[in-house]
């Protein structure tokens, strides 16, 4: 294993690079995991500030896992006393133009079902699935972000889509 060139992340330039590399993924990870009522942007900021304050103790290799662990823990601390309520922001389809009222109602119902089904997924399944479908990430990339094996990612995503199909189609 090659030795890391930097044994801490106190260098400002290095810190900026870390931010550019991980901030978006970290934000999405928190958002898809906990939903919209958690301010994911805030959590990202907090995690990076913590990284900066402890920069002496953290080697570059450990920076990513530090950020994800800290952001997750901060969010969990906040949610401790609330039951997790998942609610996803709905965006109107800009590409659908043929809008007869029946279709719109149907569409709305479908999304409602979708939303409920997503809430029933495990956190792990949901994060992997949404990173895959929405952010267009490949299995390998997700494996890197979540620090798990590619096989595990595959399993989670497949499990998620099967579960969603069953939930949505059954009702």
């Amino acid at each position: 294993m090659p030795k890391d060139l930097f044994d801490n992340v106190c260098e400002e330039k290095l810190f900026s690079e870390l931010f550019q590399k991980h901030a978006k993924n970290l934000h999405d990870f928190i958002y898809y995991k906990y939903g919209e009522h958690v301010d994911a942007k805030d959590k990202v900021q907090e995690a990076f500030i913590k990284l900066w304050d402890n920069c002496q103790k953290i080697p570059l290799q450990k920076a990513k896992s530090f950020l994800f662990t800290v952001a997750n823990n901060i969010t969990l601390n906040e949610l401790k006393h609330n039951t997790v309520k998942l609610k996803y922001q709905q965006i109107a389809h800009p590409y659908k133009t043929n809008e007869n009222p029946e279709f719109i109602l149907e569409e709305k119902e479908y999304l409602q079902k979708y939303q409920n089904a997503l809430a029933k997924l495990t956190e792990a399944q949901r994060v992997a699935f949404l990173l895959n479908r929405i952010e267009g990430k490949k299995h390998k990339e997700i494996a890197e972000i979540l620090n798990i094996s590619r096989k595990a990612v595959e399993k989670r995503i497949y499990g998620a889509i099967e579960k969603l199909r069953k939930e949505i189609d059954r009702i």
């Binding site: 400002e12 901030a23 999405d28 994911a40 965006i91 979708y114 949404l130 889509i161």
Partner: peptide, 28 residues
């Protein structure tokens, strides 16, 4: 196909890396 297509409606809010980086620099 439908699930995959509609997943986009749940997209996370826009996240601007340069903007957020600027914000954090006040602390660092």
């Amino acid at each position: 196909m439908k699930i995959s297509e509609n997943a986009r409606t749940f997209k996370s809010p826009t996240y601007s890396i340069p903007e957020e980086l600027e914000k954090i620099k006040a602390y660092t």
